[in-house]
Nucleic acid binder design. Sequence first.
DNA 1: CTGTTAGCGCTTTCAA
DNA 2: TTGAAAGCGCTAACAG
Lengths: 336, 336
Amino acid sequence: MSIQAVAKKAGVSVATVSRAFNFPDKVTPATRMLVEQVARELGYLPNASARTLRTQRSRVLGVVLPTLLNPTFAECLHGIASAAHAAGYAILPLTTAYEIAQEEEAVGRLIAANVDGMILVVSNPGTSAALARLQAGHGPYVLAYNRHPGHPCVSVDSEAASAEVVQRLVALGHRRIAMVSGTLAASDRAQQRYRGYLKGMAAAGLKAPPLLEVPFVETAVDAVSRHLRQRDRPTALFCSNDLLAIRSIRAAAQAGLQVPRDLAVVGFDGIALGEDLTPMLSTVAQPNSEIGARSVELLVQALASGQRLAPSSGLLLPHAFRAGESCGPVSSRKAD
Amino acid sequence: MSIQAVAKKAGVSVATVSRAFNFPDKVTPATRMLVEQVARELGYLPNASARTLRTQRSRVLGVVLPTLLNPTFAECLHGIASAAHAAGYAILPLTTAYEIAQEEEAVGRLIAANVDGMILVVSNPGTSAALARLQAGHGPYVLAYNRHPGHPCVSVDSEAASAEVVQRLVALGHRRIAMVSGTLAASDRAQQRYRGYLKGMAAAGLKAPPLLEVPFVETAVDAVSRHLRQRDRPTALFCSNDLLAIRSIRAAAQAGLQVPRDLAVVGFDGIALGEDLTPMLSTVAQPNSEIGARSVELLVQALASGQRLAPSSGLLLPHAFRAGESCGPVSSRKAD
DNA sequence: CTGTTAGCGCTTTCAA
DNA sequence: TTGAAAGCGCTAACAG
């Protein structure tokens, strides 16, 4: 079904059909209705590739995410998809499995696909070759979750949020507060969260035990559980993300500890599922869906004005500590 | 960066550049290397829209899913994305929020986007206008999770799996086994699972209590909890999906019951997160990622052979009961 | 208000 | 082995 067929059947020119679709008020109502009628009969749908080729805009936004298996990013993509749809854009999502090489490849594929703009979550904005390439041209882009002065970013203040978590745990009587994280090098978020933790500990005059860095999710439960069997085990665990927090709760059970009675566990991310768990997960809730939606809005705005996005146009969205049942006061058994 | 620029700089024709990329052995090695060199220098990437317009294939697969907020579908999309990438395809995912009207709209958008094929999860294959449209033309498609004799489907045998769950619960001593489901009308899966449950109950000579249909997720916990406070409350709950199972565990706690001691809870879907929960979720594990991957494979195969997919080419993948800690024998307190 | 036409970047005959 | 040229479906001057 092409515009030609519609034109012929309606007895008008292709230009008129095109106008009827794109600028309905540039044709007489009679013509417009005729064209619409014929188009409907023929089941005509404008060919997106032809339109893109001609106009040099695809109305597609590229999205680069680490993975969809972490609900954080699935929620974010949900927000992106909704906002994009509302603004008349489709999305082309690519995942990187946290691998730098895949970030670069993804950007290349998106450029080739003529996306109008990109939203990306990268490992490390400071050293990303993919970003360097984007800065060289190829339309506007925004980083989500990342934070870096050289790029427009939509995120929360992870560092402050983490320090705040420590402060809350201290207020609950905890002194031995350990942090559990995935590979620090794998993401700037992990680094920011750890930095915030250290800051919080220092502010409370506490000595931070060594970071429990868990390289592989498969072994997370065992690693944490082993850690919890030590003498002078922590009474509270601050986990770098909700998935780790969930596994830490499991690790606690495995070590014979009950959450929150024997161990307080706090996560980071605010995945929706956390609210349905028993015990309900305590976490730093990020507006995941909104992070995605706002990123789209920035992009759409930039697209409309023909500008690229300045680093200063980024957004720092509010986070909120979600007090769940996985976090309670230190018990007398644990206090020393 | 167009093919023209590369041709000019390399001192060859555009046809040669095109061949160097698409049929490397149709040009002399020297020419090929020259072209590749120049292309690299210029950062040339073939324009996907132009290629699509010319060849009438986009190398994009459309995906229609209910939502990304249910990890089941996020996992499936993960499988789709991986398999598609491996086969040289990109994906264009659209979500419908379980709304029929959105299914139709999505299919329209995908057709306009020139996708080469589609993978969809619909509410009800039997009555779907979107599917009727696909059957009329527009390339091959596969349904995932759905099951219907008139369409190629990749799924598990939900009915048998559900009957099997009942059988296991009965073997554990349970007699009062209730089923919790979302709106039955919203999906054929829910209907199949309920049918399997009824079958299983009948096979065990048990009377099935009325289905506990929970229309809104927001009220699920309250509804189930209220149900659990009744006299002659069930000793086991079979939930139509894992998200409901997780909420049911919460509902149990709210009703003062401990899982699995006072109540056995079994889900359906096999989301990865279930294995990390405490208690670990008992569930019917579907190979979610594989369902996506196999759907892609069918599509790619059909695309290669230029055939559309026959309903009989669908796949019934094996499910597995994943015995978690949320399900145990009926306790003496509960047995009557 | 409507029609004619060039051309977006690419692939693919057809000829050389 | 390589080049010239047509044309995929559409939009946007430009002309009428």
